[in-house]
Design a protein around this nucleic acid. Structure first.
Lengths: 206, 206
DNA sequence: TGTACATCAGTGAACGCGCGTTCACTGATGTAC
DNA sequence: TGTACATCAGTGAACGCGCGTTCACTGATGTAC
């Protein structure tokens, strides 16, 4: 698969940690391109990196731990991608739209990583999403605040920004996963659907 | 697993087709209870039915064909469950709400089957969702008609029932899969979120 | 400056497992005469 | 009514595969003296 993998050189002493990053990168690519957690096997990752399978155990306790790290990494990048698109100077409605658009852009560009981030693990145990994992409730607060800001600027009639933000979130999630999951549907423009979700659920005034 | 499985009696001549139904039932249960397509192996299904693995080949060409049949079966039951809850005598808004509630009830009671129905196959090839599979676009038309009926009865301001129905569908889907996929989130009442989706996306007038 | 040595970053072979699929078969059941 | 036989509904053993994981190891790299 990876023709450069066989020429990989062993890291120097003290640089063993570099392999960890290479493993995460390869595992993330496999997750995205092969389309599921089940494709992210220890052996496939090792093959992709150009290393023997047991080498992975120096950096991850087992396959579960590796998978969990991949998902955590993806989540961090997801949040960073959204924050990068928020323009603090703009008005609240523009900010809300920009954030939602960035959310969907990530889901569109990395659909399998996105889906894995927000679905229960099937082929691994609950360790991937432990009960104490907050999965970014801080990140969700950004959405609540964005809706709240629209209310305060007079652009939204929402009387319950938290619950309205929940509705908007589930709407965006549904759009993100159904578009890739059911490609044969006669989909309208993605932005058209997204605008309906934002306008209707954040209760924006025309 | 199934202690009654070892006492299963061979079907009589002419009744070999019964095994097909037993296989589908067992595969559906495995899909639901073990939580993923990867749990629905030929051997696991055979074990559950109380039959040897090669017996399945008398009824399905291969594992893919079996999985496809399970999903098709689930879809038929899904549509039937929704239609059963529509009360034709009621007013359009009540009908719309009843249909949406039935949709979510199925997704809540059989989350893994629901999720599998609407997601790309990962561990099997595209044969499970072939390009010519309409996946129930007729069923979707029911939702469009329900929104349209609300418009005609003066209960909705929608000017584009199809696109608004798409938005409502993705909203319901997102709610259905996120509630089971991210159980640690501080979810509001499901009916509260659903009402926000229906009111806001079908543009119901108060 | 030279050298012995501990350490580090990996390797290669092996294990047991469950899987999808194939193949030749078996034995009860119904039917033709 | 009896019996030979075709058919049907499965079975059991075997195959090759990729997997996660373990184990003892190797050889280059840096360090202590």
């Amino acid at each position: 698969v990876n023709s450069t993998s066989d020429v990989r050189e062993r890291n120097r002493r003290g640089e063993g940690g570099k392999l960890r990053a290479e493993i995460l990168r390869a595992a993330g690519e496999l997750l995205e391109q092969e389309g599921g957690q089940q494709a992210v096997t220890l052996r496939a990752v090792a093959r992709q990196v150009g290393v023997s399978a047991p080498s992975i155990y120096a950096h991850f306790a087992d396959r579960d731990a590796m998978l969990r790290a991949v998902v955590e990494d993806a989540f961090i990048e997801f949040i960073a991608a959204i924050k990068a698109d928020l323009q603090p100077g703009e008005d609240p409605v523009t900010q809300l739209r920009a954030g939602c658009a960035a959310y969907l852009r990530f889901a569109e560009q990395r659909p399998n990583q996105y889906r894995t981030m927000f679905s229960r693990p099937f082929n691994v145990n609950e360790a991937v999403f432990p009960a104490d994992w907050h999965f970014g409730s801080d990140a969700f607060q950004v959405l609540v605040d964005a809706v709240q800001a629209c209310v305060e600027s007079g652009n939204s009639t929402s009387t319950d920004p938290f619950n309205d933000a929940v509705a908007l979130w589930v709407g965006m999630h549904g759009l993100a996963v159904l578009r890739t999951g059911v490609p044969h549907f006669p989909w309208p423009e993605q932005s058209d659907v997204l605008d309906r979700l934002i306008d209707g659920l954040a209760k924006l005034t025309p």
